[in-house]
Design a protein around this nucleic acid. Structure first.
Lengths: 169, 169
DNA sequence: TATTGTTATACTCTATAACTATA
DNA sequence: TATAGTTATAGAGTATAACAATA
């Protein structure tokens, strides 16, 4: 991997691809953030945390949330505190380790999330409405290669292979 | 576009695609931000501004920078101020409109940018090294459809069609 | 000693809105 | 009046590091 050996503009296609990828993500992300703020008075990280918990009915430890959300632990504490105050999630003791918590959605949190998730899915479906089902699958597959490769390069020893982890990095 | 009519999880493929797109972008973006900070003590928005100027030898107005960078005008003022202080860009009067400026790279700014751009390109080429040239072209094309469609939906009257524009939004 | 989670802090990035100067 | 740019401000989002409690 000799970066210097790569002459400038020898690979302009990769660069153009990156700029386009970044633009697409930013465009969609801005729409989603605005929608979450306007309709549900919430933010993307809060929505992200709740969506992680929705698929873990028995809850998830702070450290696991941190890893999956790709942010450091202090931030997870802050977001969790907000959601606890609003009664949307709760901290439950982990039996056998009195340092750790499991965070899980409350009944109210689950209802609130389902409401948001339905709207959110509508925004996303609309964002990709220019693509056919086949094209969506193609895009998904190509990005899968990129993701696996980048993650492998960032965390060669990782076996879980699900998400990058700022806590480890 | 009846969002309510779209039953939950009726289009899980679009949702999965979005999560993967977001993850890929975040993974690469974190690498780029870290690299710019560690090696050049700079940030992505600063790099972005300079890269816009590199392709406009005669400079670019603040409003055009704002539109292309997809951020509001106040932020462009702040970033430009920093770069002016460091001697990397300069403000030039626009003849015929005493309200406006052209911002352009100084000779030193151009040299500094070329240095950063070479490294940056290396990081990006590496990030997409799992893809063949053909796959990169496919991905670029598919994302092009998404971009055009999302932008058209956000700014139906726009003729330029290059970038979303927070100043208009 | 190492790990889980919390606290405190600081900085980047961004949008909003009020403002000045000019068109 | 409208536009170009600036200023002031507030808030989201994030990382770092020091810390307490427990393993």
């Amino acid at each position: 991997m000799d970066l210097e050996a790569r002459a400038h503009s020898e690979h302009p296609e990769a660069l153009r691809l990156w700029l386009r990828l970044l633009t697409c993500t930013q465009l969609i992300e801005k729409q989603v953030r605005a929608g979450l703020r306007e309709r549900f008075d919430t933010t993307l990280p809060r929505f992200d945390l709740m969506s992680q918990l929705e698929r873990a009915p028995e809850g998830m430890k702070m450290s696991e949330l941190s890893r999956r959300m790709m942010v450091t632990g202090g931030n997870v504490t802050g977001i969790t505190d907000q959601l606890v105050t609003e009664g949307l999630v709760e901290r439950v003791q982990v039996s056998g380790d009195r340092r750790a918590w499991r965070v899980r959605l409350t009944a109210r949190g689950r209802r609130a999330f389902q409401d948001m998730a339905r709207q959110h899915e509508g925004w996303i479906v609309e964002a990709f409405s220019a693509l056919s089902d086949k094209e969506i699958a193609q895009l998904h597959k190509l990005l899968g290669k990129v993701k696996a490769d980048v993650q492998h390069r960032q965390h060669p020893a990782s076996i879980t292979g699900q998400q990058a982890t700022p806590e480890i990095a």
